[in-house]
Each structure stands twice: as structure tokens, then as C-alpha cells.
Amino acid sequence: MKQHILPALKLTIICIVFFCGIYTLLILAVAQLAPNKGNGETISINGKVVGYELEGQSFSNDKYFSSRPSAVNYNAAGSGASNKGTTNPDYLKDVESKIDTFLFHNPSIKKSQVPAELVTASGSGLDPDLSIDAANIQIARIAKSRNLTEDRVKTLVEMHTEKPLLGLFGPATINVLKLNIDLDKLN
């Protein structure tokens, strides 16, 4: 055992210097070439930051496309999921009340059309995206509350649809923040 202590101590120190120090600094140096120097990509309006491109935010006004429910209320300093089991009765009641709230705000929509992702919380609580279904279902409400034609809103949604990777892999998505910013520009 004894003859192993000294190499163990020395190797540990070398590894600290190398992996915590040199490796970290190397990646930090490369980060200076990355978008916004590795500080996170922000979106600004008139020079003021209104959000992080990758992180969702809460939209409770009917004039905006609402984001998905968040278990942490879009707290970007404390991400998390609801961790509710799929058969938990309290959870299912909660989903039901979310459905009712959604139908109240979107009276032209039938219950069977409500996409589940709009009444279930995301994994991070910061989901920046909506599915195509979840965006389309809100078009009627947006158009009505903003006095726009549904076609204009629909065109905007289509413009913001990000196709699957290379058109082949994964789901199509729509970034809610970018969509809502452009929505404000329509009026």
C-alpha cells in the first residue's frame, strides 16, 4: 500500500492541473470564437436583451403564443421537471384543469384537438419550442386578439418552423420567443 501513496498524491495533483486547468482553459479559449464568446446567445430588441435564444420564457398574455407549461415557472436559474408519474391521480387532475384553462382561452378549439404537449410540463422547465400542432392550435386565438387574419399568422408560423435536421432526423420545432418577437412586428 505504502509505495502507492506517493504516486497517487502526485498523479492527483497533476490531473487537477491538467484537467481542471489546462483542459478547461483550452475549451475556454475556443469559446472566444463561438457565438457571444460562450456567454450564451441572447436576443435583443433596440439594444436591450429580452431573452436567451435557447431558453424558453413564460407568455401568459393571449396575444402571444404561449410556451409549454413549466414545472419551475421558467426559472432559468433552477431548471427542473414535474417528475409526476403518468398514472398519478393528482397529476391527471392538474392536466385536466390545464385543458380547461386552455379551452377557456381558445373557445374555438375542440377538446379532442388540444395537443398534449400544451398541457404537460417539459423536461427542463425551459423548453424554448412548440411543436407544429401546438403552434397551429393557437393561431385562431392570436389572430382574434390582434385583429389579424388567420392566414397572416399562419404564414408567420410557417416561416418560423424549423425543419427536422437535414429534413430527415427528429421533430420539426418552432422557437416561441422568436415567433412572438416577429408577431409584435406584424402590428
Binding site: A81, T86, Y91, V95, E96, A116, T120, D129, S131, P171
Partner: peptide, 23 residues
């Protein structure tokens, strides 16, 4: 989620509780 299907809404994108749209 079978229990959510019983609530009568659309689950075209599967069980989405705890999942991210982009994945």
C-alpha cells in the same frame, strides 16, 4: 400516456410530460 388519452385530448407527439419538444 393511456391516462391522458382518456382525458380526450390529442397525443400525436406521444407522451410529452417531462420531455422536450426539440427531441
Amino acid at each position: 400516456n393511456t391516462s391522458i388519452a382518456k382525458l380526450g385530448i390529442a397525443q400525436n407527439n406521444g407522451s410529452m410530460e417531462g420531455k422536450e419538444t426539440r427531441f
